[in-house]
């Protein structure tokens, strides 16, 4: 790490606190601008998708194990199995596939 960890954490902490607390304390009316509302609505799905793929296939020792975990996780999540089960299914997919390959 070239930069100072504690300065990083300070920057992160202030940014995330501002995001979470400012709307809650200052602005108590709903947002009116249509574009901003829809933009904010789609943001979580896009951010999490971008962070998931291809990172998941780079995270495992065998990239095919990561790909397998991705598909298993998508199916489990589509069947609404919940956070904890989906997470376990992904982990076990990798564990099992890497045992054989």
């Amino acid at each position: 790490m070239k930069h100072n960890f504690y300065i990083y954490l300070l920057v992160m902490g202030i940014s995330v606190f501002a995001i979470r607390v400012l709307p809650l304390t200052l602005i108590r009316k709903p947002i009116k601008n249509r574009f901003i509302r829809d933009f904010l609505y789609y943001v979580p799905y896009v951010t999490l998708s971008v962070m998931t793929f291809p990172a998941i296939i780079d995270a495992t020792k065998n990239p095919y194990a990561g790909l397998f975990a991705l598909f298993a996780g998508i199916i489990a999540a589509y069947r609404q199995m919940g956070l904890f089960k989906v997470t376990l299914i992904c982990c076990f997919s990798v564990l099992i596939l890497e045992l054989f390959f």
């Binding site: 589509y78 919940g82 956070l83 989906v86 982990c91 997919s93 990798v94 890497e98």
Partner: peptide
């Protein structure tokens, strides 16, 4: 082997939110 399996837990959580 175990670290490799655990490293996808985070992505499992993401999938449980977006899918």
């Amino acid at each position: 082997r175990i670290v490799s399996a655990l490293s996808v837990a985070l992505f499992g959580m993401f999938l449980a939110i977006i899918i």
